[in-house]
Amino acid sequence: MSGPTPEERALVDRISADSLTTRRDYLRIVATVSGGLAVGSTLVSAGVLHRHGDGTAAPLKVADRLAPGEAVTFDYPGEDDRAMAIRLADGSLVGWSTVCTHLACGVLWRDNHAEQDGLYCPCHEGVFNARTGEVTSGPPPRPLPKVLVVEDEQGAVWAIGTARSGESEEAGLCRGLRERDPALAERAGCGRRS
């Protein structure tokens, strides 16, 4: 099979020397990207993304007993909302969504680390404070959403509600109550906005 003729080579050379994408083409491409970003932003605001660890559910018993330094994982409030209850060394009980606020990897409990570095996301080395949920280091943009956990008289641990990143426990409880039973929320002193 013979190769390209000199005329064909010259044509290829001529075509490759030309700028095939003009500035008007670039403008059209940039305008298309811009429209896509505007549509994407609309979808995000309309709620197309799943807000991890958010919502309401019936109280869930997650452990019969939890010793200091121990943690238990569970799904709350939905089956896709991975969460963890931790008994810190001083005996206090905390609960967090373990879906990283960076790119939704699983967050792990490190009981051999200091409390402020206790929760660790191995995907991009995000670290959260196990007591407050705040970001200690790494790329996560928000604190971990909270899962409200309480202990009953027998020492069993229950998950009873959620609070979004940076939201107070009371605000989270009131929001959940308003979604389930607005009249009861009103009687409990939860206004329209807490």
């Binding site: 932003s41 995000v44 605001s45 993304l49 807000r51 943009p141 979004r164 990143s165 940076g166």
Partner: peptide, 14 residues
Amino acid sequence: ALTVATNAWMAGST
């Protein structure tokens, strides 16, 4: 703006 919108929505600031 899209990163800010996503972050705000995930944090509940619709």
